Computed example of a mutant assay.
Amino acid sequence: MDATQSPELNPHIAEYYSERYEEADRLSVNAFGRLERERTKQLLLRELPPAPARILDVGGGPGVYAAWLAHLGYDVTLIDPVARHCEQAAEYGTFTVQTGDARALQAPDASADAVLLLGPLYHLIEPDDRARALREADRVVRPGGLIAAAFIGRQTPILDLAAKRKINDDALYALLGTLDQHGVNDPESGFTVAHFHSVEQIRQDFRAADLAEPRLFGIEGPLFPLIASGLVEDDPEAFEAALRAARLADDHPELLAAGGHLLAVTHRAL
């Protein structure tokens, strides 16, 4: 496929985000989403160049992070393949919104100071597609610029469904038993098409794209199951404990798989 051609969005993903799931609420509707949001912000603030750097928020969905970054003074362009997400993001009016795909960005070479891929890579099942998206990020970021990509951990569905006590559903239990074979989610689980990464697979994806070895961080951290359970939904002390545990876990790589999402960061070669 020519680099200027826009790849097709998987129809299951298009239907899920257009008709079945309200992504705009996900990072605020409960403590589970808020933990992911606040911890991601903390990690990004460590890594991003100062404002008004130019940021491409690729697969930025309805614009939660783009709006936050624009408020901080960054020059943000959000790119997403789902029309509904682009419409919702455009309502902020504080950043540029474009329809597009992570695998074929329209941005010129070396035109951004940072590229965020906080959603696309776990919706790309094929390794070649993930490598293509990472190479596109490397192409459009300036030399030395930041590339930050989020992944869903291989163990996340087990931890999440166990915490919510849904693991007692025999059908879901059977689906979870297949994850270790390939890491590909079955939409019958209630989530859409997705790939759940092991730590080594994340590194493999970056190597396949000829990018520098990434640094990895657990986003939600080791108290993720407690927050996911909903049992401490209105407990600010439990929420703060989860954030603090996630920060401490940065110094313990063996805890990477304990959380829900992982963030991989690297820089384009100079």
Rank of each mutant, 00 (worst) to 15 (best):
S6W: 05
E8G: 12
E8K: 05
A14W: 02
S18Y: 09
R20D: 11
Y21N: 12
L27W: 15
A31T: 03
E36M: 13
R39A: 11
K41G: 08
L43M: 13
L48V: 10
P52V: 02
R54M: 06
L56Q: 06
L56T: 08
V58S: 01
G60L: 00
P62L: 04
P62S: 05
L72T: 09
Y74H: 09
D75K: 14
I79G: 04
D80F: 00
D80W: 03
R84M: 06
E87C: 07
Q88A: 15
A90H: 14
F95C: 02
T96K: 10
Q98E: 13
Q98I: 08
R103G: 05
Q106E: 13
A107N: 05
S111T: 07
D113C: 03
D113T: 02
D113A: 02
L116E: 11
L117A: 01
P120L: 01
P120T: 01
P120F: 00
H123S: 00
D128M: 10
D129H: 09
R130K: 12
R132M: 13
L134W: 11
L134A: 13
A137C: 05
V141C: 04
P143Q: 03
G144A: 01
I147N: 04
A150T: 02
I152G: 03
T156R: 02
I158V: 15
A163F: 09
R165P: 06
K166Y: 10
I167G: 10
N168A: 13
N168S: 12
D169C: 08
A171K: 14
L172A: 11
L172Y: 08
A174Q: 14
L176P: 03
G177T: 08
D186T: 05
P187A: 04
E188N: 09
G190I: 03
G190F: 06
F191V: 07
H195T: 10
F196L: 13
H197G: 02
R203Q: 14
Q204E: 15
R207A: 03
R207S: 08
L211H: 01
F217E: 11
G218K: 11
E220K: 06
E220D: 12
P225E: 07
A228L: 09
S229I: 11
D234M: 10
D235Q: 11
P236W: 09
A242V: 02
A242I: 02
R244D: 15
R244S: 15
H252D: 15
H252P: 03
H267T: 13
